[in-house]
Write a protein that binds this DNA or RNA. Structure first.
Length: 861
RNA sequence: GCGAGUGUGGCGGAAUUGGUAGACGCAAGGGACUUAAAAUCCCUCGCUAGCAAUAGCGUGCCGGUUCGAGUCCGGCCACUCGCACCA
C-alpha cells in the first residue's frame, strides 16, 4: 500500500493550477462576484505562522465560493514601504529596495508552496513606482479638493542622531539606539482631513453589520464624538481669555481650577519670562508623543499666577499648566472638577486645590456628600450644592446649564471629536515621496501630473545622521512647476498607512498605467465581501481605509452611484498564533526545535545539553524564540497538514496554540482519508448507484449523516467556523470507517460518503483531495473547477429525537421519542419511566415543564 | 492611565443562542497485530466516593434572576489587544 506522497503531489497540483490558470479572474457580468481579501503582508523576510493562518482562512472561503459559482477575486500583494527596510539597510549595509524585493521573491515562493488560490497576475508591490505614481496623484487631488493641508506639529526628535523617531523607537523616553533623551520638536507636516468625514465614518459603522461589534465600538470610541460646551473665561486683570471645552457643563459649580496644555499659546507666551514654567514645559516635552505616555505620567503642573473669575459664583480659579491636558483635543484647556474626575482629583490633591462635591448618588439623602480617596464619577447621579441645578439628574442638569450658559453668553454648545486629522509626513527615505515642490515665490506647489511618479534616488547614504533624502546632494533640487525657477522638493515621504488605504482598489485593475483603477471595474468588484486580518488593525488601518474610500468618491475616483462606500462589507479579525516558551538553566530563551524530551519526562537543549524548563504559552515572537518556521512545517508535513492545523483547533478570532502533536494529528487524519479510499478502490470503482429511498437501518443512518454533514459545512463554512467543519467531517469519517460494507447499499453509501469527505475537505486541503479525485475516483475535471456538492434535504431530519428528562433541573434519564410527539404524551412517557419513578418516589410533583423536542423538567419535593 | 476583548477537563475547543456541559482533536493509560519497532486498529479517560448501579461536585471568583444559567443581570480577579511615526 502506498502512502500519500505530499511533496510530489503538492508540487504537481500547484503547477497544474498555475499552468491551467485555474484561479485567474476577470470581470464577468453574468456571474455573481465575491471579493475575498486578506491583509497584505509587510515583506519582512520570511513568512510566519500568522500569515499561514490569515491566508488559509481566506483561501478556504475563496475556494468554496468559486465552487459555489461565484466569480471570485482573491489577490495578494506586498505592503513594501516602511521602517524595517531602512533598519536592515543600516545593519546589513544593503539597499532598502534590494532588501525588500529579495524578501518579496522569497516570501512569494513560500506562499505559493502553501497552494493558495491567488490570481498572481494581480500581484502588486506598494513600493513600485507604478503603484505609488497613482498615490501621488491622489494626494494632489486631495490637495485640490481641500482634503490635504500643511500645519505645524510635534515629532519625537533624537538630538544625537538628528532624526525623527517613531514611537516604537522611543524606549522610556530615550532614543532606542542613541539613548539620548527624546525632545519634542515642531515640524511643518502634511495632514489629511479625515475629520471632515467624522460624521460619515460614524454613520457608516451602522451599515457594516458583518463587522465584529468590538471593532465597531473601538472605532466609534476612537472618533469619540462628544457634545459639550466651550466656555470662555476672561483672565482676571487682563484682556486675554481662556477657552475651555467640557462635556460636563453640569459640574460647573464644582470647578476649582483651569488646566491648560504645556503647548497652549498662553503657556508658551508666559514661559518667555518665567524660567520655572519654561523648565516645566521642557520637562513635559521629554515624553514621547504617545497618548499613553501622557496618560501614565504622574500628574504635574505649574501655577501660572493667572486667575479667571467663575461666571456664576464669582470665585477666582487659578490657571495651571498641567501635563495631562492634551493640546490636540478640544481647546487644549479644561476646567478641573476634582470631586468628580479622577485625574483632576489627583492633581487637586497634589496642589491642595479645593474639592467641591456637586453630584451625589441617587439614593443619598443629605446635602453633606463627601468623597474620600477617589473621585465620584457615577453618571447616574443627582446634583446638589449647585444652585439652580439642585435635585436634577446629570442629564437634566447638563441641558439646563447649557441653555443657561448660552443665554448668559458664558459659552457656546459645541460638538467635539477625539479624532484628529491624519498626519502623513514622515522624515524617512523608504516611502512614497510627497509630490510637492517649494518655491520662494509660489510656496508649496504640487508637481505636474505629467511628471509623476516622483521616484526615490538609488544612491543614498544611511550611515550618516538625518533623512537620506534631505542629505542627497542633488535629488531635492528642481524647478518650480509654476514659474520654472529653481525650487526644492519636499523631502518627506508618506506614512505607509497611505499605501494600505487603497491597495484593495488597485488589485482590481493592477496594470492600469493611466489611472489608479478603472471606475467600472471598481463598480463591479467593490466592495470587499470578506476582509481578514489581525485585530491590531481594528482602529487605524481600517479607519484610514474607510476614510480613503469616501475621499476617493469625492475626488471622482469611485462612481458616486455605487450602493455603499464602506470598503469592507464583512470583517474577520483573527487571533494570534501562540506557542509554549522554553528557557534553559541560564535563563536564555530556547527555540522549540532545540528542545528534546528525555525519557524521565524532563527536557533538554539538543545542542548544549542544558536543562530546559517549559514556560507559558505566549504569542509567537522572535524575541522569545517560541516560533516555528512555516517552511519547516511544509517540508516535514506538507502544505495540506499545515493548512488544516491552522484552521482546525481554534475558532478563527481566538488565539491558536501551535503544537507539534496537533499537526501530527492532522497529518494522520489526511493519511487515513487517503487509505480509506485506496483500500476500498475496487468497491469505489465498481459499485453502481443505488436508490436512496430503499436504504434502511445503519445504512440509512449514515447516508443521512452524509447529507447532514454537507448541510452543516454549508452553514458553517461561510462563517469561518472551520474548526467545527473539521470536527463534522471527522465524525463522518469515523462513521464511514465503522461500516461493514456487506451489501450493495452500504458499499454505495461508503463510496458516496468518501466522495463527500473528499469534496468537503477540498477547500481546506486542496492538494490531497485533488489527487484522490483524479487518481482514486478517476475524475477528469479538477476538483477546484467542480461545482460544490449538494445535500438532499429529505435526509436532514430524523424521525425520532432524544430528550432529556430532568428532576428538579438535574438530568435523570434520556428517552428516544418520535419527533412530533404531543406534549401530553411526552409528559406521560416521562412520568412512566422507571428511573424517573425511582427518583421522584416519596416526593410530590409540583410542576411539570414540557418543551417539545427539547426537555422535560419535573419539579418535585 | 483611557478604550476594547477573552476566561469551559491534563490541553485546544463543542454546546441547536436559556434546555442532556465536555462533540471533534491532542495528551495519557490499557489491549490487539509484529521477532521487534514504526504505522494501524480497539477500549478507558471532568473531579470525588463506589466493584458497579449510582450519588455529590463542576464552565475564572462572589452574588442574583429562572422550573432550568457556560449562556441573562450586578460586583470582582487574571490575561490579551489598541492608544494616532511598528506594520
Amino acid at each position: 500500500m502506498s502512502r500519500h506522497n505530499f511533496n510530489e503531489v503538492e508540487k504537481k497540483w500547484q503547477s497544474k493550477w498555475e499552468s491551467e490558470h485555474t484561479f485567474k479572474v476577470e470581470v464577468d457580468q453574468a456571474k455573481p462576484k465575491s471579493y475575498v481579501l486578506e491583509m497584505l503582508p509587510y515583506p519582512s523576510g520570511k513568512l510566519h505562522m500568522g500569515h499561514v493562518r490569515n491566508y488559509t482562512l481566506g483561501d478556504v472561503l475563496s475556494r468554496y465560493k468559486k465552487q459555489k459559482g461565484f466569480n471570485v477575486m482573491h489577490p495578494m500583494g506586498w505592503d513594501s514601504f516602511g521602517l524595517p527596510a531602512e533598519n536592515a539597510a543600516m545593519q546589513h549595509d544593503t539597499h532598502p529596495g534590494k532588501w525588500t524585493y529579495e524578501n518579496i521573491d522569497f516570501m512569494r515562493q513560500q506562499i505559493k508552496s502553501l497552494g493558495m488560490s491567488y490570481d498572481w497576475d494581480r500581484e502588486i508591490a506598494t513600493c513600485h513606482p507604478k503603484y505609488f505614481k497613482h498615490e501621488q496623484q491622489m494626494f494632489i487631488d486631495f490637495l485640490k479638493k481641500g482634503l490635504a493641508y500643511r500645519k505645524e506639529s510635534l515629532v519625537n526628535w533624537d538630538p544625537v542622531e538628528n532624526t525623527v523617531l517613531a514611537n516604537e523607537q522611543v524606549v522610556d523616553g530615550k532614543g532606542w539606539r542613541s539613548g539620548a533623551v527624546v525632545e519634542l520638536k515642531k515640524l511643518n507636516q502634511w495632514f489629511l482631513k479625515i475629520t471632515d468625514y467624522s460624521e460619515e465614518l460614524i454613520a457608516g459603522l451602522k451599515e457594516i453589520t458583518d463587522w465584529p461589534e468590538k471593532v465597531r465600538t473601538m472605532q466609534n470610541n476612537w472618533i469619540g464624538k462628544s457634545q459639550g460646551m466651550t466656555i470662555v473665561f476672561p483672565v482676571d486683570n487682563s484682556d486675554q481669555v481662556v477657552e475651555i471645552f467640557t462635556t460636563r457643563p453640569d459640574t460647573f459649580f464644582g470647578a476649582s481650577f483651569i488646566g491648560i496644555s504645556p503647548n497652549h499659546a498662553i503657556a508658551l507666551d508666559l514661559a518667555k519670562d518665567n524660567k520655572d514654567l519654561a523648565k516645566f514645559i521642557e520637562e513635559c516635552n521629554q515624553t514621547d508623543t504617545s497618548e499613553e505616555a501622557v496618560a501614565k505620567a504622574e500628574k504635574k503642573g505649574v501655577d501660572t499666577g493667572l486667575r479667571v473669575k467663575h461666571h456664576i459664583t464669582g470665585d477666582l480659579l487659578p490657571i495651571y499648566v498641567a501635563n495631562f491636558v492634551l493640546m490636540g483635543y478640544g481647546t487644549g484647556a479644561v476646567y478641573g472638577v476634582p470631586a468628580h474626575d479622577q485625574r483632576d482629583f489627583e492633581f487637586a490633591t497634589k496642589y491642595k486645590l479645593p474639592i467641591i462635591e456637586v453630584v451625589k448618588p441617587l439614593d443619598y439623602k443629605g446635602d453633606d456628600f463627601k468623597i474620600n480617596d477617589e473621585a465620584y464619577t457615577t453618571y447616574e447621579s443627582v446634583h446638589f450644592n449647585s444652585q439652580f441645578l439642585n435635585g436634577l439628574t446629570v442629564v437634566e442638569a447638563k441641558e439646563k446649564m447649557m441653555t443657561y450658559m448660552e443665554e448668559h453668553k458664558i459659552g457656546r454648545r459645541e460638538t467635539n471629536y477625539r479624532l484628529h486629522d491624519w498626519g502623513v509626513s514622515r522624515q524617512r527615505y523608504w516611502g512614497c515621496p510627497v509630490p510637492i515642490v517649494y518655491c520662494d515665490e509660489h510656496g508649496a506647489v504640487p508637481v505636474n501630473s505629467s511628471d509623476l511618479p516622483i521616484t526615490l534616488p538609488d544612491d543614498v547614504e544611511f550611515k550618516s545622521a538625518g533623512n537620506p533624502l534631505e542629505n542627497h546632494p542633488t535629488w531635492k533640487h528642481t524647478t518650480c512647476p509654476t514659474c520654472g525657477k529653481p525650487a526644492i522638493r519636499e523631502t518627506d515621504t508618506f506614512d505607509t498607512f497611505f499605501e494600505s488605504s487603497w491597495y484593495f482598489l488597485r488589485y482590481l485593475d493592477p496594470r492600469n498605467e493611466e489611472q489608479a483603477f478603472a471606475q467600472d471595474k471598481a463598480k463591479y468588484w467593490m466592495n470587499v465581501d470578506h476582509y481578514i486580518g489581525g485585530v491590531e488593525h481594528a482602529v487605524m488601518h481600517l479607519l484610514y481605509a474607510r476614510f480613503f474610500n469616501l475621499a476617493l468618491r469625492d475626488c471622482g475616483y469611485l462612481d458616486s452611484s455605487m450602493e455603499s462606500f464602506e470598503p469592507f462589507k464583512a470583517l474577520l479579525t483573527q487571533g494570534m498564533i501562540c506557542h509554549e516558551t522554553y528557557k534553559d538553566e541560564d535563563g536564555n530563551w530556547v527555540f522549540p526545535d532545540d528542545v528534546i524530551k528525555l525519557n524521565d519526562g524532563t527536557y533538554q537543549h539538543a545542542k548544549t545539553r542544558k536543562k530546559v524548563t517549559i514556560g507559558r504559552v505566549e504569542k509567537m515572537s522572535k524575541s522569545k524564540k517560541n516560533v516555528v518556521d512555516p517552511d519547516f512545517i511544509i517540508r516535514s508535513y506538507g502544505a495540506d497538514t499545515a493548512r488544516m492545523f491552522v484552521v482546525s483547533d481554534s475558532p478563527p478570532d481566538r488565539d491558536l496554540e501551535w503544537t507539534e502533536s496537533g499537526a501530527d494529528g492532522c497529518w494522520r487524519f489526511l493519511n487515513r482519508v487517503w487509505r480509506m479510499v485506496e483500500e476500498k478502490s475496487d468497491i469505489i470503482q465498481n459499485i453502481a448507484d443505488q436508490d436512496s429511498a430503499s436504504f434502511t437501518g445503519e445504512t440509512k443512518k449514515i447516508y443521512s449523516l452524509i447529507h447532514k454533514t454537507i448541510f452543516a459545512v454549508e452553514e458553517e463554512l461561510p462563517q469561518f467556523q472551520y474548526n467545527k467543519i473539521i470536527a463534522r467531517i471527522r465524525e463522518l469519517t469515523n462513521s464511514l470507517s465503522s461500516m461493514s460494507l456487506d451489501d450493495d447499499h452500504s458499499q454505495y453509501v461508503y463510496k458516496f460518503g468518501m466522495e463527500a469527505v473528499t469534496r468537503l475537505l477540498n477547500p481546506i486541503t486542496p492538494h490531497i483531495t485533488e489527487e484522490i479525485w483524479e487518481v482514486l475516483f478517476k475524475k477528469k475535471t479538477q476538483l477546484s473547477q467542480t461545482p460544490w456538492i449538494e445535500y438532499d434535504k429529505n435526509f436532514l431530519v430524523d424521525d425520532t429525537v432524544t430528550i432529556a428528562i430532568q428532576v428538579n433541573g438535574k438530568v435523570r434519564n434520556t428517552l428516544e421519542v418520535p419527533k412530533d410527539i404531543s406534549k401530553e404524551d411526552l409528559e406521560k412517557i416521562a412520568l412512566d419511566d422507571e428511573k424517573i419513578k425511582n427518583n421522584i418516589a416519596g416526593k410530590t410533583i409540583r410542576k411539570v415543564i414540557v418543551v417539545p423536542a427539547r426537555i422535560v423538567n419535573i419539579v418535585a419535593n
